[in-house]
Simulated assay, not measured.
Amino acid sequence: MPLGDDLDDRVRAAAMAWLRQRCTPDDPVVRRDELLGFRFEGRAFPLIDNQLGIRKPQGMAAALSILTTYTSDGARAPYEDAVGDDGFLRYKFQDNPRHYTNEGLRVAFERKVPLIWFFGIKQGLFLPFFPVWIVTVEAERSQIAVALDEAQRHLLTEGPMSPIERRYSERITRQRLHQPVFRQRVIQAYGSSCAVCRLRHQVLLDAAHIIPERETRGVPAISNGLALCKIHHAAYDQDILGVRPDHVIEVRADILEEVDGPMLKHGLQEMHALRIVVPGRRADRPDRELLEERYERFRTAG
C-alpha cells in the first residue's frame, strides 16, 4: 500500500476515534482551538484549516474535513439553501476551480473515503458530523453532494431516485443535521440551561420550537427556539405551560388548581408568573411575534 494511502487511513481513524471519545452526549461540541491543536502520532496535525473551509493536509491526496462557519440566524437557517431537491446537502468548492483543496474533494469522492464535517454552532464552536461521504461532484455548480450516513449514501448508487427515496433522503438530512444543529445552537445560546427552571444538564435539555417545525413559520432558527428541560418542553408542547411575549410564564388554570405530588407543585405550579431566562445576545432572543402567536394558541387551548 502506498505511503499516502496508509497515512490517509491512519489519520482518519485517529481523528474519528478522538472525536467519538471527546464529544459526549453532555458535551457534543468541540472548540476551534482543540481542532487546531489535534496531535497525530506525536506531532501537531490540525483537523481544520485555519483559513479555508476544506482541510487537505500535506501528504494526503484526499481531503480530511470540511467546515461550515457560524453565521447568525436571519429569516432562515444558514444550511437551508445548501439542501438540493434530492435531500442531499451541498458544499461549495473554493472559488479557484484548480485550488488544491478542490482536488482533495474530488479524490475523496473517487476513493470513497469518509470525511468529517464541522458545523459552526457559535463563534469558535463546532458540532462534528462523521463519517460523511461525497456522493456526487457537481463541477458545473462548483459543489459536491454529501451523504450523512450509509443509508443516504447508497440512494444515489441505484439509478434515479423515486419520490419516496427523495422524501427519505430529506428526512435523513433533517434528523441527522438540521435537528442536532438547531438543538445545539439553541442550547448554546441559552448557556446550556433550561429557560424555565435553569436545569443545566445538556442530556436533559431540548430545543423547543416556538412555532412547530411542520409549519411554514417554524424555521429552525434560534429566534424560534427555547432551551427547555424535557419536562417543560413536554408541558410547552401540550399547552400546559405558556410563555407570553413579555417572557412571563403562565401555567394553565386547571393545572394550577390540581393537587398532586411535589413534581407538579415545584416543577410546574411554582413556575407560574416567573420570567424565562433569555440569551444575553439580542439576536438570539425569542422572536416577539412568534411568541405572541404561540401564546394565543396556549390561551385558547386553556
Rank of each mutant, 00 (worst) to 15 (best):
V30Y: 00
F109E: 03
G218V: 02
P128I: 02
P160R: 09
D239G: 02
R22T: 13
V277M: 13
Y168I: 04
L47G: 09
V243E: 08
L52H: 14
F93C: 04
H232A: 08
W133L: 01
V146M: 03
D49I: 09
F109P: 01
E158P: 00
I54P: 07
T173K: 00
C23T: 07
R176W: 06
I249P: 01
W18D: 05
F88L: 02
F38T: 06
A15C: 08
E257H: 04
P78L: 10
Q179P: 00
E150S: 14
R106G: 08
R167C: 08
A147W: 12
I210C: 02
D27W: 00
E110M: 13
E293W: 06
D284V: 11
E289H: 13
F130G: 12
Q238Y: 13
K112W: 01
E250V: 07
E250S: 13
T101S: 15
R153K: 05
D6V: 10
F40Y: 06
I121Q: 07
L105Y: 08
E41Y: 08
R106D: 09
G84E: 03
A301D: 14
A253F: 09
Y70M: 13
L125T: 15
M161N: 10
L205H: 06
E110N: 14
T216G: 02
G104W: 01
I116D: 02
S162P: 08
Q269Y: 12
D6P: 00
L67I: 12
D85G: 15
L52R: 15
L205A: 10
A44V: 15
C229L: 11
G53E: 05
A208M: 06
V11C: 09
H99F: 13
R288E: 09
G84C: 11
F38V: 09
L3Q: 05
Y236W: 13
G124S: 11
E289A: 14
E270V: 02
R12G: 07
R141H: 14
R22G: 06
R198H: 08
T69I: 06
W18S: 04
Y79F: 10
S193W: 06
Q143A: 11
D26E: 11
R252Y: 04
N50E: 15
R98V: 03
P262I: 01
S65P: 00
D26P: 08
E215W: 14
C197Y: 02
L47Y: 10
E150A: 15
G191H: 11
P279I: 04
G53N: 10
P262C: 02
A82S: 11
R106M: 07
A234N: 04
V83Q: 10
H233Y: 11
I48H: 01
G4I: 11
V259R: 09
I211T: 03
L67G: 06
L148S: 05
P25N: 10
A82L: 08
R185G: 00
F130T: 13
F40I: 05
H266A: 12
R10E: 12
Q58F: 11
D85N: 12
